[in-house]
Simulated scan of single mutants.
Amino acid sequence: MKLPEDDITPVITRIKRAHGQLAGVLRMLEEGRDCEDVVTQLAAVSKALDRAGFALVAAGLKECLASDEPADLKKLESLFLALA
């Protein structure tokens, strides 16, 4: 299912932000920064990616509800559970 650009643009922004955060985590590790600081930033990256995934699933559900075609509920459920 192709999602509307209006739904994808914020997800792309969120993933780009997470990409930058992950680069920061790598730098922190290479610099020998404190474990607590690294884990805090890693948790932020993880949360950003989770939110991006849930935003994609929500956009897919919205698109299915607006569509005249029957939704593949098993596929949507599988996508949702992949993020759990």
Rank of each mutant, 00 (worst) to 15 (best):
residue 17 R to K: 13
residue 30 E to N: 10
residue 75 K to H: 14
residue 67 S to P: 06
residue 28 M to N: 02
residue 12 I to W: 00
residue 52 A to R: 00
residue 76 L to I: 13
residue 24 G to D: 02
residue 81 L to W: 07
residue 39 V to W: 04
residue 62 K to E: 15
residue 6 D to L: 07
residue 61 L to M: 15
residue 68 D to C: 09
residue 11 V to A: 04
residue 23 A to I: 10
residue 14 R to S: 06
residue 10 P to V: 06
residue 64 C to W: 03
residue 56 L to M: 09
residue 68 D to E: 15
residue 53 G to R: 06
residue 50 D to F: 11
residue 25 V to Q: 04
residue 19 H to M: 13
residue 84 A to S: 12
residue 58 A to F: 05
residue 48 A to Q: 05
residue 46 S to Q: 12
residue 75 K to E: 14
residue 31 E to G: 02
residue 80 F to P: 05
residue 63 E to V: 13
residue 84 A to R: 08
residue 52 A to H: 08
residue 40 T to C: 13
residue 43 A to N: 12
residue 28 M to Q: 11
residue 75 K to D: 13
residue 11 V to M: 07
residue 82 A to F: 10
residue 29 L to G: 08
residue 14 R to G: 05
residue 77 E to F: 01
residue 72 D to R: 14
residue 49 L to G: 04
residue 3 L to A: 05
residue 80 F to S: 12
residue 23 A to E: 15
residue 64 C to V: 14
residue 20 G to M: 09
residue 3 L to H: 00
residue 4 P to E: 08
residue 51 R to I: 05
residue 70 P to W: 02
residue 59 A to H: 07
residue 1 M to P: 05
residue 9 T to M: 05
residue 3 L to M: 05
residue 74 K to D: 15
residue 23 A to V: 12
residue 44 A to T: 03
residue 55 A to R: 01
residue 15 I to N: 03
